[in-house]
């Protein structure tokens, strides 16, 4: 038997090209998927509104300028002062320490995994590194307080506060190493091997190839990894609440205790503040500032990524 092309009957064709059924399943599926996509957007809008509205009430009583430039944060006192700088400086100090730890170690780990490690080593090491990211932050917090501060740091700095920015920052840095390392490694592994071959063929060593070809080619991904790691550090709450203490202090000495924006929100929110009181509203004002800072970080990272893409692709 031979297979021939089907005979075309024009009337029959016209009929058969019509839609057979209304395809209701398609519409239902589409509706379900739209709902799934909307949930996160609606939640974000809801969060922003629920932060902004109490914040507006807060700022009707405390001028924005006084809030941003005030150096004393005593919301729980009678006639308390609402200068947020001590919380901002605590956040920035601890984030800076974490960044100093996480960026060199994370990038170093990424370079090793992507350029030096054999397939077998990489298969073991990368999942191990990612386990670090799965440790609950409360465990990191107690590790910082009970081990790093009480066992290690007191030997080097006898005058150190039991709650201090240094241990919180160091442990937070270790916590975000997997984020920085894993995302940077992904970016570097995605660099086409032809670029490496080109570099080796010109007589470059492994180190020269890694630093002069692979890292520049993967820069957008590496920068994104840095920014994501820093964003996590800024938003991290548990480690700082446990290890850095709850005393708002405008200080540049990492051996002292500090309160961050997140730990203020956690601590104040956990207390029994009267709804509508100034202390209660101050939580939302701090949250709004935190939101704006993280949002700005994300915007910067998106622009950086886009800029390097333009140059390199």
């Amino acid at each position: 038997m031979t297979i021939a092309a089907p005979q075309i009957n024009e009337d029959e064709l016209r009929r058969s090209l019509r839609q057979m059924s209304p395809r209701r399943g398609e519409a239902i599926m589409r509706a379900i998927l739209v709902v799934a996509a909307s949930v996160s957007i609606l939640t974000t809008v809801g969060i922003v509104l629920s932060i902004v509205i109490p914040s507006i009430e807060f700022f009707s009583e405390v001028p924005v300028w006084d809030f941003l430039t005030g150096t004393v944060w005593t919301p729980l006192f009678a006639n308390g002062e609402f200068g947020v700088l001590p919380l901002v400086s605590g956040t920035l100090m601890i984030t800076a320490i974490a960044t100093v730890v996480a960026i060199p170690l994370g990038l170093g780990a990424a370079i090793y995994l992507s350029e030096y490690a054999s397939m077998r080593v990489r298969k073991v090491l990368k999942p191990t590194l990612e386990v670090l990211a799965g440790i609950p932050t409360v465990v990191f917090g107690f590790f910082a307080l009970e081990f790093l501060t009480r066992v290690v740091l007191v030997r080097f700095f006898p005058s150190i506060d039991i709650f201090n920015a240094l241990s919180a920052g160091l442990i937070m840095g270790i916590m975000i190493i997997p984020t920085v390392a894993s995302l940077s490694e992904d970016a570097m592994s995605a660099v086409p091997s032809g670029l490496r071959d080109g570099s080796y063929a010109l007589g470059a060593s492994k180190r020269q190839t890694a630093t002069d070809v692979v890292i520049p080619a993967a820069l957008s991904g590496i920068v994104a990894a840095f920014v994501l790691g820093i964003s996590r550090a800024i938003g991290e709450t548990m480690i700082v609440t446990i290890a850095a203490g709850l005393e708002p202090r405008l200080s540049f000495n990492p051996l002292e205790g500090m309160q961050t924006m997140t730990s203020y929100i956690a601590a104040a929110g956990a207390g029994d503040l009267a709804t509508g009181s100034m202390e209660y509203k101050s939580i939302f004002a701090v949250a709004l500032l935190l939101f704006i800072i993280t949002f700005a970080m994300n915007m910067i990272s998106i622009r950086l990524v886009r800029r390097y893409r333009q140059v390199y692709q």
Partner: peptide
């Protein structure tokens, strides 16, 4: 001994 490859592998520079 230099080498030129199948795909032009210019560096992102």
């Amino acid at each position: 001994i230099g080498m030129v490859f199948q795909k032009p592998n210019v560096f992102p520079k």
